[in-house]
Measured scan of single mutants.
Amino acid sequence: EVHFESHGEEQAMRVVKMLKKRNLTVEVKVENNKWIITAK
């Protein structure tokens, strides 16, 4: 499981795309203006 924190939507979306290319399940949450990305 991979956790990634991002402060910007643009950066977060880039990471999500990259993770999805690896056929991982990606969950995105926004907490306290931080984008929290979890990949399994």
Score class of each variant (00 low, 15 high):
residue 27 E to M: 11
residue 36 I to V: 08
residue 30 V to Q: 09
residue 38 T to S: 07
residue 28 V to F: 06
residue 35 W to G: 00
residue 31 E to H: 09
residue 30 V to I: 12
residue 6 S to K: 08
residue 8 G to R: 13
residue 16 V to C: 15
residue 9 E to S: 07
residue 11 Q to C: 15
residue 27 E to P: 00
residue 4 F to A: 02
residue 27 E to F: 12
residue 32 N to S: 04
residue 29 K to Q: 07
residue 33 N to E: 07
residue 24 L to V: 05
residue 33 N to Q: 06
residue 24 L to T: 02
residue 40 K to L: 09
residue 16 V to K: 02
residue 16 V to Y: 06
residue 34 K to P: 00
residue 16 V to P: 01
residue 24 L to R: 03
residue 30 V to D: 02
residue 10 E to H: 08
residue 27 E to C: 14
residue 4 F to R: 04
residue 37 I to S: 00
residue 17 K to Y: 10
residue 31 E to Q: 09
residue 25 T to W: 13
residue 2 V to G: 05
residue 36 I to Y: 09
residue 11 Q to L: 13
residue 31 E to S: 06
residue 22 R to E: 02
residue 38 T to E: 03
residue 33 N to Y: 06
residue 25 T to Y: 12
residue 8 G to L: 14
residue 30 V to R: 10
residue 17 K to T: 09
residue 15 V to T: 05
residue 23 N to E: 04
residue 29 K to S: 07
residue 1 E to H: 13
residue 32 N to H: 07
residue 20 K to E: 09
residue 12 A to Q: 01
residue 18 M to W: 14
residue 1 E to F: 13
residue 36 I to D: 02
residue 21 K to W: 12
residue 29 K to H: 10
residue 28 V to D: 00
residue 33 N to L: 05
residue 14 R to V: 08
residue 22 R to M: 14
residue 6 S to V: 15
residue 7 H to P: 09
residue 35 W to H: 01
residue 12 A to N: 01
residue 16 V to Q: 02
residue 9 E to C: 15
residue 18 M to V: 06
residue 5 E to K: 06
residue 40 K to S: 11
residue 14 R to W: 11
residue 21 K to A: 13
residue 40 K to Q: 09
residue 8 G to I: 14
residue 18 M to E: 06
residue 18 M to H: 06
residue 18 M to D: 02
residue 14 R to A: 09
residue 7 H to V: 10
residue 4 F to T: 04
residue 31 E to R: 07
residue 12 A to Y: 05
residue 32 N to V: 04
residue 33 N to D: 10
residue 20 K to A: 07
residue 22 R to D: 03
residue 7 H to E: 13
residue 17 K to D: 10
residue 20 K to F: 12
residue 23 N to Q: 07
residue 3 H to Y: 14
residue 27 E to T: 13
residue 6 S to Q: 07
residue 22 R to W: 14
residue 30 V to G: 01
residue 15 V to K: 03
residue 29 K to A: 05
residue 33 N to I: 03
residue 5 E to F: 11
residue 31 E to W: 08
residue 10 E to V: 11
residue 21 K to M: 11
residue 40 K to W: 15
residue 31 E to L: 11
residue 37 I to D: 00
residue 26 V to P: 02
residue 38 T to M: 07
residue 16 V to S: 03
residue 30 V to K: 10
residue 22 R to K: 09
residue 7 H to W: 14
residue 27 E to I: 12
residue 4 F to S: 03
residue 37 I to E: 00
residue 3 H to V: 14
residue 3 H to I: 13
residue 10 E to R: 12
residue 10 E to S: 10
residue 27 E to L: 10
residue 6 S to P: 04
residue 20 K to L: 14
residue 12 A to S: 02
residue 15 V to R: 04
